[in-house]
Amino acid sequence: MISWCAGILSSLLLLLAPLWAWAQQDGIFDEYRAMFGDDNPAVFVIDEGEELWFSKAGPNSTSLEGCDLGLGAGVVEGAYAQLPRYFADTDRVQDVESRLEHCMIELQGKTREEIHAKPYSLRGDLGTEMEALVAWLAEQSRGLAIAPGQAHPSERSSYELGEQLFYFRAGPHDFSCATCHGQSGKRIRLQSLPDLTAHEGAAEAYSSWPAYRISQGIVRTMGWRMRDCFRQQRMPELIMGSEAAVALQTYLAVNAAGATMAAPGLKR
């Protein structure tokens, strides 16, 4: 039912394709987005995420209600905004995706292989469980301040490694994250590029993911955004919830700290 609704909405969005070309003009996207009003198609995905959280699944036939996202087992309100953070039980700094993976394995008895088989949608897909869960969890932090952990030494070293990775130039094109996101007021083709090394740019970006991507008809997560940036950097595929994925998100979240979560957002 939910997928069906999302399908209908995606088709409606395709009818808006001519508007799309027009919306590509820099600055006009805000007007285009305003035409949606409060109608972010992500609402269907958020509902699906909620359903998934409370549904019994996996070999253990258990829900995720016992999952500790940092604020205690089952506490979801405000949890997303305080990630990534250090978890004593795994002795790792974790983002929302690696923590969900941990809970799916420990509570539900799922395998790492099945969780990693397809965490993010391919073009034309109607969404994955991971995307829906992340969308719902982000919604539970809407309006709250971004406050990732930085008290534990592992959290601070995650930030430092994230900074190193942000400037890491490699691959045939010598690109790093900083190539596109290290200066303010720049754009690639017509797309504005936030300066993720500064608070303002990091806040704008971090607070708006996960987001419904109109051009792809799907909710995308911050973890996916990291993976896709590396694809564009001509690098291999970033593993969901890996240490590098977490470190980069820690770097962004700390740079964005204090800003207000406004996800799931709506993006071109």
């Binding site: 291999p236 970033l238 240490e243 590098a244």
Partner: peptide, 9 residues
Amino acid sequence: LLKSSMADK
């Protein structure tokens, strides 16, 4: 860290 966080594609 980056190497252990990536996979051939």
